[in-house]
Amino acid sequence: MKPKIVSFTLNGRPVDVMVRPMTTLQNVLRRQLELTATKAGCRQGSCGSCTVLVNGEPMAACLLPIEDVEGQEVLTLEGITPLHGLHPIQEAFFENFAVQCGYCTPGMIMVTKALLEREPRPDEATIREALSGNLCRCTGYQAIVQAVTDAADRLHGNGGVS
């Protein structure tokens, strides 16, 4: 199959990539555009380390053919990192020791971003359900769940919630 041009919005900027059909978004991001924050833990769609947001919805970039993002808005971890300092979700993960080896972290943060936009004050069960497609072998999840709760506070103020 001959390469073709696929156009989409990546982290707020228009991009055109010349790519063979059925190439995964993961390979386009990591190999062609050299945006490596999106990780490649399994390439089977089952670990969540490659999660990106497509029009605000979490998707596994390793299973997503590049054609499917034609004209769509793709957000990766690079796109939420501010020029200086950290995004409130990143701050929360950092401050709460929700990071050990760091390999699952980008996916966890992207899922958290989508969750907190949908639901500003999720309870613990909602957080765990939202993260259920993301595996972490190091932390045991408790610190990650705390970080998501803390991120909600940082984004929306703790609003009288003790």
Binding site: Q44, S46, L135, R137, Y141, I144, V145
Partner: peptide
């Protein structure tokens, strides 16, 4: 051959620790 068949606990499997 992967995490679909090999059960690594997820966030909902964690007990009180």
């Amino acid at each position: 051959g992967g995490f679909n068949e090999y059960i690594v606990p997820g966030p909902q499997d964690q007990p009180e620790i």
